[in-house]
Deep mutational scan, measured.
Amino acid sequence: MATGGRRGAAAAPLLVAVAALLLGAAGHLYPGEVCPGMDIRNNLTRLHELENCSVIEGHLQILLMFKTRPEDFRDLSFPKLIMITDYLLLFRVYGLESLKDLFPNLTVIRGSRLFFNYALVIFEMVHLKELGLYNLMNITRGSVRIEKNNELCYLATIDWSRILDSVEDNYIVLNKDDNEECGDICPGTAKGKTNCPATVINGQFVERCWTHSHCQKVCPTICKSHGCTAEGLCCHSECLGNCSQPDDPTKCVACRNFYLDGRCVETCPPPYYHFQDWRCVNFSFCQDLHHKCKNSRRQGCHQYVIHNNKCIPECPSGYTMNSSNLLCTPCLGPCPKVCHLLEGEKTIDSVTSAQELRGCTVINGSLIINIRGGNNLAAELEANLGLIEEISGYLKIRRSYALVSLSFFRKLRLIRGETLEIGNYSFYALDNQNLRQLWDWSKHNLTITQGKLFFHYNPKLCLSEIHKMEEVSGTKGRQERNDIALKTNGDQASCENELLKFSYIRTSFDKI
């Protein structure tokens, strides 16, 4: 039985969820670079991206490699990797027998973001014989899940209580170790020597080791999670996991709180800001991140802002960003909400898709409305799209047979046209069989910064309504002859009103 693990408890099935942008060198404390989270699957090609990484700022997932063999891993080693800020997950990587050479110096898994409450997941690794993470000293947050690894031993010899604050939620089941077939031998045991430290858990006094050649490092209890030197002297209180010299914040392997210019500090002093819960960055760093993602459509890219001495992905609820200094300031009234469309555009074809934009005031991208039916549609669209004030790209209304009016965009005031449909149009209306009105132009103002209007096959939309939009939106004169079809717009509506004058002759039985 794995020490510190839980057996036999019912657990939810383990679901495996399925960018080499360097964020800056980590400095003297770390020998390499800070790398983003990685999802490495199918083959070993991307694994080489770990070569210079000291910190993975995010998670590391290595999974679904069915053609790899043990010899493929023999020359692979990433000794610079010290810390993973989120979680480490391995799933069905064939041929991998140990992690001792792959990650010989991995010391800390912070667990800032977890995989279903777990910071370390080893699942269905069919050839893994031992973990071998002999320098792993601290899992700051989260638990361990090690399950269905039929060859995995050296679990009962690990004292997880020396690595985690609590072992109650560890789930370590259905491994070879369960069948008591392992016969784990710690260093020196074969020669009758006791080389590794022994600890007591559940009444068992057991030597602690990761492999037959690597003991588990056990520091004096007084050192807590700070770690200790090879001689057993406690590291500085700002260290986490390990250090090369005692009581020196510049000799830590990793930091308990924050890293700044080669030393570990309790908090980031001005003019620095907390970033990702582990390091200090200056304003320029946060500003660069903001600008890199301002026009990016890459998933996970955030326009970072500053709030409460932190550089964070977005302002919290009730705050909006001051564009001059990136500071989050309290909103006066309802907060603006910028919604970034991942692929640059979004099609609204149902109430469900409209709900995804609920509360958005600025759309960074283009909207395509293609709704053919739905219950209580006008009210639903207004509830979900009615706060949109600005669209950076274009607005396209296409084959939306259920629409009679666009009044559900009740606050839309600006279409920038930074991206144009077919390279020309910022407003595009095609084949809307029941569209009769755009907006009530006596109450609604709309500016279209650039781009043209396109109207074709809107049989109940009168040309007068379209011409009014040209005047109000500032697009009059931009359109070419064929942009607004004269014969297919309003051709099934009563669009022309003329005053009919009647004269009559009164007659009676005795007068003409």
Rank of each mutant, 00 (worst) to 15 (best):
L29V: 07
G32T: 08
E33Q: 10
P36K: 12
M38S: 02
M38W: 03
D39W: 13
N42P: 02
L44H: 10
L44P: 10
L44C: 03
R46P: 05
R46T: 05
R46A: 15
L47P: 03
H48Q: 15
L50C: 02
L50Q: 01
E51C: 15
I56S: 02
E57K: 02
H59Y: 10
H59Q: 12
F66K: 09
T68D: 12
T68W: 12
T68Y: 12
R69L: 05
R74G: 02
D75M: 13
F78I: 12
L81S: 01
L81N: 00
M83I: 14
Y94L: 11
Y94F: 07
Y94A: 09
S98P: 00
K100M: 10
K100R: 10
K100C: 13
P104I: 01
P104V: 02
L106Q: 00
T107H: 10
R110E: 03
S112T: 12
F116A: 11
F116W: 14
F116M: 09
N117W: 09
A119T: 04
L120I: 05
V121Q: 02
I122R: 00
I122V: 08
E124P: 00
H127K: 03
K129P: 01
E130M: 14
L131T: 12
N135W: 02
R141P: 01
R145D: 03
I146P: 00
E147L: 11
K148Q: 10
N149G: 06
N150D: 10
L152C: 10
C153H: 04
C153A: 05
Y154M: 08
Y154R: 15
A156Q: 09
T157G: 07
I158D: 05
D159W: 14
D159T: 13
W160K: 02
W160H: 02
W160F: 13
R162V: 08
I163F: 12
L164H: 10
V167C: 14
E168M: 06
D169H: 13
Y171T: 06
I172P: 12
L174M: 13
K176A: 06
D177A: 15
D178A: 14
D178P: 07
D184Q: 02
I185S: 06
G188H: 13
A190V: 10
K191R: 10
C196R: 14
A198T: 10
G203V: 07
G203F: 08
F205R: 02
F205M: 07
T211G: 01
S213M: 13
H214L: 11
H214T: 10
H214C: 15
C215I: 05
C215M: 15
Q216R: 12
V218H: 12
P220T: 09
C223S: 04
C223Q: 04
C223M: 02
H226R: 12
H226K: 12
C228R: 02
C228A: 02
T229M: 11
L233S: 12
H236F: 02
S237M: 05
C239H: 00
C239D: 00
G241D: 02
D248L: 03
T250A: 08
C252N: 00
R256A: 10
N257V: 01
D261W: 00
E266K: 15
C268P: 00
F275S: 03
Q276D: 15
R279V: 05
C280W: 00
N282S: 15
F283L: 07
S284C: 02
D288Y: 05
S296T: 14
R297F: 07
R297N: 06
Q299K: 15
Q299A: 07
G300T: 11
G300P: 09
Q303T: 10
Y304Q: 03
I306T: 04
H307V: 04
N308W: 09
K310A: 10
P313Q: 09
E314N: 15
E314V: 04
E314I: 03
C315L: 01
S317H: 02
S317G: 09
G318S: 07
T320V: 11
M321V: 15
N322W: 06
S323H: 15
S324Y: 04
C328F: 01
T329F: 11
T329Q: 15
L332F: 15
L332I: 05
C335H: 07
P336V: 14
P336N: 08
